[in-house]
């Protein structure tokens, strides 16, 4: 029966291929785990892995809306800057404006959402290409953060504030729970809801999506706003984890996030991608970084390895695509 076809869960021609891409990733992941654990016995320990989970949460969270955005053939380069701006606002609102910390957190999340919505508004209404728009706000939001902070850092948060970034629940870091729940929700929304279907439609053929009466613009504004909100959330976690606020927080985050998403099989041309792939991509990037650091590889070399893995995975999936003769 066609309805029982498990592949029916994912739209598009590429989904058989996607599964394969995810298999390739999973295989690379297992291989990386294996090799790294042979290199050093500090790698494959519960403590280390949980700690890596803690470090992964911010990238992982931002990667979820980024997957949505890239599926619609868009991109958001400003996430790192929004993260910086939100971190600053969190500290500034509390310390300088004298707001209660709770309110300051809410304010910073709101600002993140607005910053994202501004991206979305210009992209849909003024038709600025996403790459250009978010490149501009990458600079703009970072500039704002620096202007507001005046190079001062904010410290001295109350104890309860550190639960999110440094606490744990049932032995697992708090933010890892958050990431887990968010990932599952994001996956279900993408695969099962009409909103998710719309994202694939927009990415595959925006004109036809529009001609089908889908609210394309609203949909896009929503995902960019969501991206901003999530960057705000990541800022909160980040500040809570490192106990301080600085304006350069989140610099370069966009690269890690986009690398993870693309590594996860989401095509930069839009129309394909899954949350499962993104999750695997995020984990792989984090473990590679950690494993290489533990085996004594320097930072620059780590970037080289990650870049190579990225290219390799794209080559493999392109090769699979060519072999299947899609298009």
């Amino acid at each position: 029966m066609a309805t029982a076809d498990p592949r029916a869960a994912m739209p598009g021609r590429l989904h058989g291929l996607m599964l394969r891409h995810e298999m390739v990733l999973a295989a690379i992941l297992v291989a990386a785990l294996f090799v790294l654990s042979l290199q050093t016995d500090r790698f494959l320990t519960t403590d280390n892995l949980l700690n890596q989970g803690r470090l992964m949460a911010e990238i992982g969270l931002i990667a979820l809306p980024m997957t949505y955005i890239i599926i619609t053939a868009g991109i958001d380069l400003s996430v790192g800057s929004i993260m910086g701006l939100c971190a600053i606002m969190l500290g500034y609102g509390w310390k300088n404006l004298g707001l209660p910390l709770e309110l300051s957190i809410a304010l910073s999340l709101l600002i993140g959402t607005i910053a994202g919505a501004v991206n979305g508004w210009f992209i849909t209404r003024v038709r600025v290409p996403p790459l250009i728009m978010t490149l501009a706000t990458l600079a703009l939001y970072r500039g704002l953060a620096e202007g507001i902070s005046q190079a001062r850092s904010v410290r001295g948060y109350p104890d309860w504030f550190f639960v999110l970034g440094q606490g744990e629940l049932l032995g697992v870091p708090t933010q890892l729970w958050l990431l887990l729940v968010a990932t599952v929700v994001a996956a279900v929304v993408l695969a099962r809801t009409s909103f998710g279907r719309m994202l694939y439609a927009i990415g595959s053929n925006e004109t036809a999506a529009r001609f089908s009466g889908l609210p394309v613009d609203r949909c896009k504004i929503a995902i960019y706003a969501l991206s901003g909100f999530t960057a705000g959330l990541a800022a909160w976690i980040f500040v809570s984890r490192v106990s301080t606020t600085r304006s350069d927080m989140g610099t370069g985050v966009e690269l890690d996030v986009i690398a993870a998403v693309v590594l996860g099989g989401t095509s930069i041309f839009g129309g394909t991608g899954t949350i499962l792939g993104t999750a695997l991509g995020v984990v792989l990037v984090q473990l590679l970084k950690n494993g290489l650091a533990l085996t004594g590889v320097k930072g620059d070399a780590t970037i080289v390895v990650i870049g190579s893995v990225l290219i390799l995975s794209i080559l493999v999936s392109n090769w699979l695509r060519a072999r299947r003769g899609v298009d």
Partner: peptide, 26 residues
């Protein structure tokens, strides 16, 4: 008219996604 990489089923339901959805789910 069409989103060619998508399935027949998905194309046919595109203009009625709203009505077809139960809550938000297709």
């Amino acid at each position: 008219g069409l989103i060619r990489p998508m399935r027949i089923r998905e194309n046919l339901s595109l203009a009625v996604l709203g009505e077809l959805a139960r809550r938000w789910f297709v």
